[in-house]
């Protein structure tokens, strides 16, 4: 796990669920460079199987996943009591208001359109991190 240099505050953990391998890996590296920890899952099943061990603070979920799609995965994860404080970010190529409405209805807290802007990602994750430390301490 990368040391965020925040001295004592635990590094925020982000689970990235994305089937496009190149996109998943580079998003992971970006998250790591911004200063957070990440874990990749290539599909919904992998995410469901591995999140309990990883204990993410944030899920970044691609909508167009094979098999169970991002909306369904979000609904499934949201229904679990151990994930009630986790923040869900939808990552999708679709940015119309109808798509934003669909992700909000599925339970996502945020909607980010691909390709990602580093500044936007950094700002959003920063806000989430601030809120987390605020609510804890």
């Amino acid at each position: 796990m990368a040391d965020d240099g925040n001295g004592g505050t635990e590094t925020m953990r982000i689970m990235i669920v994305e089937d496009n391998e190149a996109l998943a890996q580079t998003t992971g590296w970006l998250v790591e460079m911004i200063g957070y920890d990440y874990k990749l899952a290539a599909n919904a099943k992998q995410a469901i199987d591995t999140y309990a061990e990883y204990k993410p603070d944030v899920f970044m979920i691609d909508i167009g996943l094979p098999g169970m799609n991002g909306y369904e995965l979000c609904r499934e994860l949201k229904s679990r009591p151990d994930l009630k404080d986790v923040v869900f970010i939808a990552q999708t190529g679709w940015g119309e208001s109808e798509h934003r409405k669909m992700t909000a209805e599925a339970g996502f807290d945020h909607h980010m359109v691909k390709p990602l802007y580093l500044e936007a990602l950094e700002a959003l994750l920063g806000d989430i991190a601030k809120q987390k430390t605020g609510s804890v301490g």
Binding site: N20, L23, T26, W29, L30, M33, G64, P115, L116, L118
Partner: peptide, 29 residues
Amino acid sequence: HELRNPLAPIRNGLQILKMSPDGPRAEDV
């Protein structure tokens, strides 16, 4: 959508290289 699929990692890659041009990931990127 299909055009954005390869574009999204390319943009990510550029941003990684901008932040760390000679970092350990540079060659992979």
